[in-house]
Design a protein around this nucleic acid. Structure first.
Lengths: 209, 209
DNA sequence: AAAAATTAATTAAACGTTTGTTTAATTTTA
DNA sequence: TAAAATTAAACAAACGTTTAATTAATTTTT
């Protein structure tokens, strides 16, 4: 078992729950069942550990839409639906990491780290945006604001999964409802976003009577 | 000049920039130009100061849509457009406070504080949702998912204004572009969301050839 | 293959700061 | 002159990090 990764996983859980500054290296060490000194030993410092944590956990994100975009057998709308489904999936499945990076982005410090995070996120953002732009050029889509359409998509998913408290109350659910484990919610959100995108992007057909 | 409010304003700026745990009472005191002991004197503790800060700054939010909802001279779509405009306006005008409360909501602690925050936010959320529901019942709107439609609206605005770094990159702007001071961006976002809601909510007219 | 030498991993303890808060004295206000 | 506001100083606790000693693992030498 890789001890380095054990520590990173412990750190991710705690950072997500209590924030970076709200978590002490002693807590992380206790959670990972290692000596506190090991964090300096492996990562040099707490802040560099955060950098490596984000670097490590974002690695799989790089270019996940590459293949999708260049797939000629799908319409742009079908590609958008894949984007929606995969984003809802990832977000509901592992919201903790997303909480960490978006919290970091909203702070006005650690500029270098924010540059790194936004670089990774934007690569996928641009890829998704290009789907819309292609759809516009080919005449499949209306001439919408491509960037803000993607912002809307991402923003909706992020908002719903950013707070368990809010999510439950928005959906009128009790304390026993776990937003991150509800298949029904995933399904409901996907359906809503697909419908929204269809009516927003697709041209209204001239209906003959 | 109210010293109490001076401290709260200093605290808000710093909490927004560096987070609650990332800000020391000495920093707040320095920014407000008071003695550090004054924070305990006025607010009892740092954490209670945060509670009072949120209590104080959310007070104006309570029931801001009351009058709007019961205005019979507006269609539901027109009400939605008022909601969009006022939300975009508030969010772009003072994003710092929003950063604080959404950061708090995304953390898994201070449950009582989160209950208070979500209570205030949800009052307005429900009010806006009721506009959609009324529109559905009257036949003005399609039978959409009212809650998730509002989540989409709020989420889009929140996401765009949650990070200056991301916002600039999404819109392909340089370091001189200030998202929070750009009237063009406000206009662009409002326009996009209104168009989005129109195509999503309003029924497609039977077009005769 | 066994022994010796070297490197890596792990530990408990201590380091100097910084933290939020309190105290006790002093100044300002009413 | 009594109450309220403000201050500098000190408080213990917690912070991230370092140290120096020890154990475990690996490599080199015989």
């Amino acid at each position: 078992m890789d001890k380095r990764e054990t520590i990173l996983n412990a750190a991710m859980d705690l950072f997500a729950q209590k924030g970076f500054e709200g978590t002490s290296v002693r807590e992380i060490a206790a959670q990972a069942q290692v000596n506190p000194a090991m964090i300096s030993y492996y990562f040099e410092s707490k802040e560099k550990m955060l950098e490596q944590l984000i670097e490590h956990k974002t690695s799989y994100l790089r270019g996940i839409f590459e293949g999708l975009i260049n797939n000629p057998s799908l319409t742009q709308m079908e590609k958008m639906e894949v984007v929606i489904e995969s984003y809802v999936d990832r977000m509901s499945g592992s919201p903790r990491f997303s909480h960490i990076i978006h919290r970091e982005l909203s702070l006005e410090k650690r500029e270098r780290l924010k540059e790194g995070i936004s670089g990774v996120l934007l690569k996928n953002f641009y890829a998704a945006t290009s789907i819309i732009e292609t759809g516009i050029q080919s005449g499949e889509f209306n001439e919408v604001d491509a960037e803000l359409t993607m912002v809307t998509l991402i923003g909706a998913v992020n908002y719903l999964f950013s707070s368990e408290t809010m999510c439950r109350k928005i959906l009128h659910k009790g304390k026993d409802f776990n937003p991150y484990k509800s298949k029904m919610l995933k399904e409901r959100l996907s359906t809503h976003l697909k419908l929204l995108m269809r009516s927003h992007l697709l041209k209204k057909p001239e209906q003959k009577k």
